[in-house]
């Protein structure tokens, strides 16, 4: 084998190593209220590399949340492939998807989705409870990183919206995910908090070497990203009003 062949194999290995998320011919349909089937997602191809940060723009009802739920394995695809770090997230049993999600995916929601009966620390600890690692020190460290060292034992209702989103960010990173999905993460925040929160999400993901796939229809948010893609370019499905 000559040098060029070694280089080709090495290049291929590097691509495989760097490729974090690969989507091929992904389809998802829902039954609409009139009984007909509506194709919401039809993504022929989409990929992300490790550590990459991509913003997906799309109007309401374009299937943004559905796409994130498919990538997270919360929804089962009708057809196609989703590979996360070389492991299939589609066409597998629900428990395998749950396991992969617990190990590899962090999720930040627009409405934070913090458990109201749990303290900040407990919410973050919960984020690492279903994966492989449970480390209270890391949870404390993450909350410290998002500036909530003094609020560890506070309940979500005792925090401002911005602080709640910080807890959600810490929780999303609690399981040391390879990919963080953020669904309109600043949608419930005022502009000042939104900018601060977005910056925190991006910075924290970078520091923890997690890729970030963020969906938003907010131009101010999208403008912060170098890599912005329009969902309508990726998704040939029709989306669905009320899918998000």
């Amino acid at each position: 084998m000559d040098v060029s062949s070694y280089l080709k194999i090495g290049h291929l290995k590097l691509i495989i190593f760097l490729l974090l998320l690969g989507i091929n011919n992904l389809k998802k349909s829902f039954l609409s209220s009139d009984g007909s089937t509506q194709e919401v997602i039809n993504v022929p191809s989409f990929s992300m590399e490790s550590g990459q940060q991509i913003a997906l723009s799309g109007i309401s009802g374009s299937g943004k949340t559905t796409l994130l739920n498919l990538i997270a394995g919360i929804l089962q695809a009708d057809e196609g492939q989703i590979k996360l770090s070389g492991r299939s997230m589609s066409g597998t049993s629900e428990s395998v998807r749950d396991r992969l999600r617990a190990q590899m995916v962090g999720y930040i929601f627009q409405t934070f989705n913090l458990l109201q009966g749990y303290t900040c620390l407990e919410n973050v600890l919960l984020g690492m409870s279903f994966g492989d690692s449970f480390d209270k020190n890391r949870a404390v460290e993450l909350l410290g990183h998002v500036g909530l060292t003094q609020r560890l034992d506070y309940y979500p209702r005792q925090l401002s919206s911005g602080q709640q989103q910080r807890v959600a960010v810490a929780r999303a990173l609690a399981n040391s995910p390879k990919l963080v999905l953020a669904d309109e993460p600043t949608g419930n925040l005022d502009p000042e908090n939104a900018a601060e929160s977005l910056s925190l999400i991006r910075q924290t993901c970078k520091e923890h070497r997690a890729a970030l796939l963020l969906v938003s229809h907010d131009k101010a948010v999208l403008d912060q990203f170098e890599d912005v893609r329009d969902l309508s370019d990726i998704n040939q499905g029709g989306g669905k009003v009320g899918a998000e």
Partner: peptide, 16 residues
């Protein structure tokens, strides 16, 4: 319901 959905979104299985 929402708490359960959050558990599941964080990776908890149905049997959990």
């Amino acid at each position: 319901r929402r708490d359960i959905a959050i558990f599941r979104a964080l990776g908890a299985r149905r049997r959990t």
